Simulated scan of single mutants.
Amino acid sequence: MTASDAPAFCVHCGQPAPGGADHPACHNPRTALEPPRYCTFCARRLVVQVSPLGWTARCSRHGETASG
């Protein structure tokens, strides 16, 4: 991972966030349980699928992430 690939966007609103952390306006207990909606690397909308067992989120450029 290079410096240009470092996380830089909030996963909940897509706004710039230092170090890829939650944007201060989005950081609350409710959003902690939500799946990501935006890619932390490029701020593109993610394709999110929620199931009873968890969620998967896919960026067209950076691949898939799953709940853990």
Rank of each mutant, 00 (worst) to 15 (best):
M1S: 09
A3C: 03
S4H: 11
S4V: 14
S4P: 00
D5R: 15
D5V: 03
A6E: 12
A6Y: 11
A6I: 08
A6K: 13
P7N: 03
A8E: 10
A8F: 07
F9G: 02
F9C: 06
C10P: 11
C10M: 06
C10G: 06
V11F: 07
V11N: 11
H12K: 14
C13A: 01
C13F: 00
C13L: 02
Q15F: 04
Q15H: 15
Q15V: 11
G19F: 04
G19R: 08
G19A: 00
A21W: 10
D22M: 12
D22Y: 08
D22I: 00
H23E: 10
H23P: 03
P24Q: 04
P24H: 10
P24L: 05
P24W: 00
A25C: 11
A25S: 14
H27A: 14
N28V: 02
N28A: 07
P29K: 13
P29S: 14
T31G: 09
T31W: 05
A32T: 08
L33P: 01
L33A: 11
E34Y: 02
E34G: 04
P35C: 12
P36N: 10
R37T: 06
R37W: 02
R37D: 01
R37Q: 10
Y38H: 12
Y38A: 03
Y38I: 07
C39W: 03
C39M: 10
T40L: 08
T40R: 14
F41G: 02
F41C: 09
C42I: 07
A43F: 13
A43W: 12
A43D: 06
R44W: 15
R44F: 14
R45F: 04
L46G: 09
V47L: 05
V47W: 00
V47K: 09
V47N: 01
Q49P: 07
Q49M: 13
Q49Y: 04
V50S: 10
S51E: 12
S51R: 09
P52S: 01
P52Q: 05
P52V: 02
L53E: 15
L53N: 15
L53F: 13
G54R: 06
G54T: 05
G54E: 02
W55G: 08
W55N: 12
T56S: 14
A57E: 02
A57H: 03
R58W: 00
C59A: 09
S60N: 09
S60G: 13
R61K: 13
H62C: 15
H62P: 06
H62N: 11
G63S: 12
G63P: 04
E64V: 12
E64W: 02
E64Y: 01
E64K: 06
A66K: 09
A66S: 15
S67K: 01
S67W: 08
S67F: 00
